[in-house]
Amino acid sequence: MKKWMSILLTALLSIAVLAGCNAENKNETKETEASKPSDNNDSKQITALVGLQMEMIHTIRKNLEPVTAYEQSQDAALQEEAVSSSKLIANELRGLEIPSDLSKELQGDMKESVELLALYFEERAATLKPDADLTEMDAALAAFHEKIGATFEKAGLHAPNFKKDVQ
């Protein structure tokens, strides 16, 4: 009988300890949930930034083939289409909507970044001719990477590199 009584007492004590631990976990959960709004806001901003980055890449890739075809071949027959495609990319980039989930500061930074990338494609259109000076085009791409890198780092992300996406 003493054996059963000690087992029952141990079981009750274990249940009481577990109930106490569960109560502490609920309090910690409430504290964690109270701190979630800022985490949730950060998460929305990160999602919005990465989404905008993907839109920019998609906009570039869908119209880039004529540009790269001309640059590789230097075929005069492809030049006009390449220039048109490069200008089209610039215009479509400017038409991208900056997500409202971003803070006002990040929205402004991303507008500037998109504009710098559009300027790069305008410079690229201007250099689509034999023996063109690529200095301005390279400077525009560098300025874009600097701006977008700083913007992504403000949000706690690594700076993106669009170099492979524009070639």
Results as ranks from 00 to 15, higher is better:
residue 96 L to F: 08
residue 97 E to H: 12
residue 97 E to W: 09
residue 98 I to P: 01
residue 100 S to M: 07
residue 101 D to W: 06
residue 101 D to C: 07
residue 104 K to G: 13
residue 104 K to P: 03
residue 104 K to C: 06
residue 105 E to R: 03
residue 105 E to I: 12
residue 107 Q to A: 06
residue 108 G to S: 12
residue 109 D to V: 09
residue 110 M to N: 12
residue 112 E to S: 14
residue 113 S to I: 11
residue 113 S to Q: 13
residue 113 S to P: 07
residue 114 V to F: 13
residue 115 E to Y: 11
residue 115 E to I: 09
residue 116 L to S: 05
residue 117 L to E: 09
residue 117 L to W: 08
residue 118 A to R: 03
residue 118 A to T: 04
residue 119 L to T: 14
residue 121 F to D: 00
residue 121 F to Q: 01
residue 122 E to H: 01
residue 122 E to Q: 10
residue 124 R to N: 15
residue 125 A to Q: 04
residue 126 A to L: 09
residue 126 A to H: 07
residue 127 T to K: 05
residue 127 T to W: 06
residue 127 T to Y: 07
residue 129 K to D: 04
residue 129 K to T: 09
residue 130 P to F: 06
residue 131 D to M: 06
residue 131 D to L: 08
residue 131 D to H: 06
residue 133 D to K: 00
residue 134 L to Y: 07
residue 136 E to D: 11
residue 137 M to C: 10
residue 137 M to W: 03
residue 138 D to W: 10
residue 138 D to E: 12
residue 138 D to K: 13
residue 138 D to S: 11
residue 140 A to Q: 03
residue 140 A to Y: 01
residue 142 A to M: 08
residue 143 A to R: 07
residue 143 A to S: 15
residue 144 F to W: 13
residue 145 H to F: 06
residue 146 E to Y: 12
residue 146 E to Q: 12
residue 147 K to A: 13
residue 147 K to N: 13
residue 148 I to S: 11
residue 149 G to T: 15
residue 150 A to Q: 14
residue 150 A to D: 10
residue 150 A to P: 13
residue 151 T to K: 06
residue 151 T to F: 07
residue 151 T to H: 08
residue 152 F to T: 10
residue 152 F to C: 08
residue 153 E to R: 13
residue 153 E to M: 11
residue 155 A to S: 04
residue 156 G to T: 05
